[in-house]
Amino acid sequence: MKKREEKLFSNSELIPEVISLLEEGHTVTLPLRGYSMRPFLEDNRDKALLIRARDPKVGMPVLAEIGENYFVLHRIVSIKGENVVLRGDGNIGTERCKLSDVRAEAIGFYRKGREHIDKTNGLKWCLYSFLWTKLTPLIVRRYILAAYRRIVKTENIN
């Protein structure tokens, strides 16, 4: 049996290849990096199932280019004409891009090492999303995220 070799690529190298595959009509499963979508998605644990962006809507998690070769997987907060505002679930601040910079839509996530997908149009994800995005003011999120980080850090120590 051939030994499996693992290679790491930077997002600036990997994501353009992912986008090429999406533009050819493929779906892509992308391992997630970063903490901006906490508490629902975790760095180096979860994966997103992506399709080419078709009709991005408010509330949808999308892969967008917010700077030259700088991509984020965040939720759409608002769309006004061609202008899109994004926010990661674990973020207080926002990012901006053009509608044409939204490259992919996440149709589901493989979470917590599971083999089944949590679809973004499924009841569980829609309920989480509705409740989380309605937490206002955003300072409430900050306290919840701080408590969550302490819980995760404690779990990792034990």
Rank of each mutant, 00 (worst) to 15 (best):
M1V: 11
K2T: 11
K3C: 05
E5P: 03
E5K: 15
F9T: 00
S12C: 10
L14E: 01
L14V: 00
L14S: 04
I15L: 14
P16M: 03
V18W: 07
I19E: 01
S20I: 07
T27E: 15
T27Y: 13
T29M: 08
P31R: 13
R38P: 07
R38I: 10
P39C: 04
L41A: 14
L41I: 15
D43M: 09
D43P: 12
D43H: 15
N44C: 12
R45K: 14
D46R: 09
K47P: 01
K47D: 03
A48V: 06
L50C: 04
A53F: 01
P56G: 03
V58H: 04
G59Y: 09
V62L: 02
V62K: 04
I66S: 02
E68K: 11
E68G: 05
F71W: 10
R75T: 13
I79C: 03
I79Q: 07
K80V: 08
N83D: 13
N83W: 03
V84S: 06
D89H: 00
G90R: 02
I92H: 08
G93M: 05
T94M: 03
E95Y: 10
R96Q: 12
C97K: 02
C97P: 01
D101N: 15
R103Y: 09
A104I: 02
G108A: 09
G108R: 02
Y110H: 04
K112T: 07
R114P: 00
E115A: 13
E115Q: 12
H116M: 09
D118R: 09
D118F: 12
K124E: 13
W125N: 05
C126R: 15
L127R: 06
L127K: 07
L131H: 05
W132L: 09
W132H: 06
W132Q: 11
L135S: 01
T136G: 09
L138Q: 03
I139W: 05
R141D: 04
I144V: 13
L145Q: 03
L145F: 04
L145M: 05
A147T: 09
R149H: 12
V152W: 02
V152Q: 07
K153A: 14
T154V: 07
T154F: 11
E155G: 00
N156W: 00
I157L: 13
I157G: 08
N158T: 11
